[in-house]
Design a protein around this nucleic acid. Structure first.
Ligand SMILES: [Mn+2]
Ligand SMILES: [Mn+2]
Ligand SMILES: [Mn+2]
Ligand SMILES: [Mn+2]
Lengths: 218, 218
DNA sequence: TTATTAATTTAGATAAGCCTAAAAATAAAA
DNA sequence: TTTTATTTTTAGGCTTATCTAAATTAATAA
């Protein structure tokens, strides 16, 4: 059994591991969890004892198979609850993360099984993030950043990379959401800004925006 | 703000206070929460500092207005979640308590407000217990114990006093639930057992059963 | 009313999860 | 390859929520 704090560490390390094959640094974990590096050292040593990750002094941490499974399951719960909050309780997509941070730690296999059924086995959360299955498997999806699109290319917005309230509300006011069709009208090489078409309206966006929107071009 | 542990103490004291106007004894709280009396002393002193209850050495504890409000709100959340689990996720009524014990501590006013709407403002939980409103008010309901009924009286089962899995499953196998009409066919003075009619079938029950079923005779 | 028993509190520990400050190891720069 | 800077760990503390054992107070019985 893993405590709430332990689950949060595993989840953080899971997200940080994503790209790098090399050990996740103690400092990176500390930044992500808003704690001190010394606290992280304590905890990763504990998690190493519990076989949830492998850890070598000064070399960082890597989740074990077991650790990955725990982390993926917490993420599964987080995202299923977010779907529930948006689909059933009619929350906005920028309001659900904090609550899901709490709900993801509720312990009951049966609860999640039934929630999944109740929500009709959703594949993605309200931010377009994929929901791992019961075994922690995430099926890969076709998507690229809007910034990677060329002039005149079009696609459907399938997710956000950032999901801060600020960014989500920015998108809301511009009528951009999951499912929205976006076409690149023009790209400015100098500052990587672009003009896009959303519905009837043209919009000029900075690279920061274009780097945080996932698009499916198929 | 109150911690999970503090909320559990307040809830326990709230339930224990129900009848007695006198202070709730330290030992009673310890028994209810399955802790040692010394732990209770520590905690009630802390809660007294936080103005959630009044406490005098050797005299027990009594919730303040504030303490009662916190407790009632936790109970409100517990019962709303139980309704959700049974009505929406199709859990049995004997399966929901443990999960609700966790869910009751999720912190979000908005969540509960919306859950209440989603469930269509239920007045009672799956065990027939009343759900306090946003102000912690519980409207009094007409009910008496089945054991208080006289021969030939009839009524509708509106709640259970005990709600252990064992008892709830006992009722399930005998087709007794909230809403079931029960008629007293006969009462045995010697051991307080009774014969009751449930649907087409007659059933002989002990005083222990009759003392744990709430009946509305109107 | 005194002696005994029961209830309650205090004292002192422990584990989890965090912190600050100092020491040690590694990485980067000169 | 030294020196310097950065990262990471260790040492020592703190808070919350527990516990056990001992002391104290209240209740009950003789
Ligand atoms: Mn989220
Ligand atoms: Mn999300
Ligand atoms: Mn319950
Ligand atoms: Mn209930």
């Amino acid at each position: 059994m893993f405590t709430l704090a332990e689950e949060n560490y595993l989840k953080a390390i899971y997200h940080l591991e994503k790209d790098s094959k090399v050990g996740v640094s103690t400092n990176a974990i500390a930044v992500k969890l808003n704690t001190q590096p010394s606290s992280v050292t304590d905890m990763v040593q504990k998690l190493a004892n519990k076989k949830a990750l492998s850890y070598q002094k000064y070399k960082g941490s890597l989740l074990t198979k077991e650790g990955k499974k725990i982390a993926a399951n917490v993420i599964r719960k987080h995202r299923l609850w977010e779907v529930f909050l948006v689909e059933k309780l009619k929350f906005q997509w920028d309001e659900v993360h904090e609550i899901a941070e709490q709900l993801e730690h509720i312990k009951s296999e049966e609860l999640i099984k039934r929630l999944d059924v109740f929500l009709d086995h959703p594949d993605f959360d309200p931010h377009g993030d994929p929901i791992p299955d019961e075994n922690g498997i995430i099926k890969p999806t076709e998507k690229k950043l809007l910034s990677e699109l060329q002039k005149d290319q079009r696609g459907i917005c399938v997710g956000v990379k950032e999901s801060s309230t600020q960014f989500l509300q920015y998108l809301d006011t511009r009528n951009i959401g999951i499912g929205t069709t976006i076409k690149v009208i023009d790209k400015e090489e100098f500052d990587d800004s672009m003009t896009i078409q959303v519905g009837e309206t043209k919009l000029h966006i900075t690279d920061k925006i274009a780097n945080n929107l996932y698009i499916n071009t198929h």
